[in-house]
Structure formats: structure tokens, C-alpha cells
Design a protein around this nucleic acid. Sequence first.
DNA 1: TTACTATATTCCTATATGGTAATGGATGCA
DNA 2: TGCATCCATTACCATATAGGAATATAGTAA
Lengths: 130, 130
Amino acid sequence: MGRDRNRIDTECPQLKALDDRALTHVAEYFRALSEPLRLKILNTLHDRPHNVGELTELLDCSQANVSKHLAILMRHGMVERDAQGTSAFYRIADPRIYDLCDLVCGQMALRFASQAQLLGGRPTAMRARR
Amino acid sequence: MGRDRNRIDTECPQLKALDDRALTHVAEYFRALSEPLRLKILNTLHDRPHNVGELTELLDCSQANVSKHLAILMRHGMVERDAQGTSAFYRIADPRIYDLCDLVCGQMALRFASQAQLLGGRPTAMRARR
DNA sequence: TTACTATATTCCTATATGGTAATGGATGCA
DNA sequence: TGCATCCATTACCATATAGGAATATAGTAA
């Protein structure tokens, strides 16, 4: 896992060498991912870039709100901006952001599965095991 | 990466199949990791379990605060509790939680490196490249 | 210039949350 | 039984933040 892609001298396995300052940065990074609407934006940008108006419509929320969340994602280097005329197209800066989400999804799935088993019976969400 | 370990029917690659409810859960999971003190706790529990008193001393904060943060980590299945007499020992529930942190660290390292290069000169944090 | 569109920002409010202090509850021991 | 220790919980305060409404800014076109 993580073959050579993340290999960098400043990498910090298991959070070990993290001083308080770096740890705060990591916390802020996680916080940027802790809002459903921001996850929706990242999710929507998965296939292709979108401008603010498109996102506003797709996500069914106010334009101001979308802009504000995009600014937060920008601040953490998660998306990049590409101005075209009066439009601003946003795209995913690094698709590895989805690895994070997948990890979380996998852990949640495991947890729900074991919880369901503790409650007896087959895990509801997994009944359609193929 | 992620060979067979996360292989579960409910897994959700790239957040694609996530409905709003699941997405909220993912956001809450990230939020649990968005506090420096909670990351410190996870970091401290990396090597071995600790009880509340030890954590209070190691992290230099109030006992009530540690207990509250531990409750949050418990609520998300990140740590497990083991009562021994009047003590409560906490341990990491699933060491894969550190994979998340390492991913974030790696991305931050990459980003800082490219930022430093944009500013010209060798990236400060990477000078000691071996 | 003026008008129009798209986006960003500011102000405000309601809510959520981290921290402390105080209290409660359970266990262990004399 | 009484007391001490360890932990969890509650109440409270200060701060942070998501969201809406209004406004500001930038680009485009007439």
C-alpha cells in the first residue's frame, strides 16, 4: 500500500514525528472534509470540472454557500480554480483525496457489519451478498 | 493498495454511491479526526493502551477534557475501552486509522514541497534528502 | 459609459463545540 | 462503614462556523 507515491522525506508514518504545529495542520485538513456539502462538491467534481453555477444547481443550495465552501477547499489545496470569462471552473487538485474517503467508507462498512452481527442475524446492509 | 482488506459489498469507491445519510456519516467521521487533541490521543495510543490518568498527564490537559474526547473517539469506533478496577484503559480499535493520517501527511508534504518550489529554491523541509 | 451575468465577500444569526469547574458514580482499601 | 481514587457527566462560557441575505467585484457586451 502506498507504494512509492507518497515517498517523501517529510512523510510521517503513524503520525509519529508530528509536532503540535503539524498536528494542527492535519486536524484542519480533516476538518475541511467534515462537512457534507464539501464532500458533495468533491464527489461532484470527481468526473469532471464544474463551475459555480453548475454546482449550485446540482447540489441544490445557494451560490454564496457554494462559493464559501469552494474557498475552504481551495485553502487546503483540495481543488483548483480555472477562470473562464465570468465563470470559475473548479477541479480536483489531486484525485488521491478520494483514497481518504474510500478508507473511511471501508472502515464504516466494517463497523456497521460487525455491529449488525452483534445484534444477531445477517447484516442488513449486506443481505444482497453476491 | 487495499488488497482484500476493505473488500466488502458496502464499500463505496470514490464516494460514488453515497446517499446523503451515508455522506453525513463520513463527514462526522472526519470531524472526529479534526481536533488536535484527539489526534494526539490516537498518536499516544499507537504503541500501547493507556488509561485516562496517563493520557491526562502525557497530553498535559484536564481529565474531563480527555474523557470527553475519548467518548467522541469511542462513539466513532476509533478506540475501545477496557475497565480495570477504577481505571479505564483505552486502545486503538483498528490500526488502519493511521493509514488515514499517513495519507493526509503525505498530501500535506507534497503540497508544502510544491509551494516551496514555487517560492524558488529548494524546499526547506526537504533539504536533508538522503 | 451602462447594463447584465457570474462569482466572491461581508454581515448577521443560530447552532455546535472545546475548554473549565463542579459534581456524580463506581471501585478499592483501611 | 468511611474515605480516597479514578473516571464520566453536567453546566456554563467563549469561540467557531454553516447558512441566508445583501452587497461588492470582475468580466462581457451593447
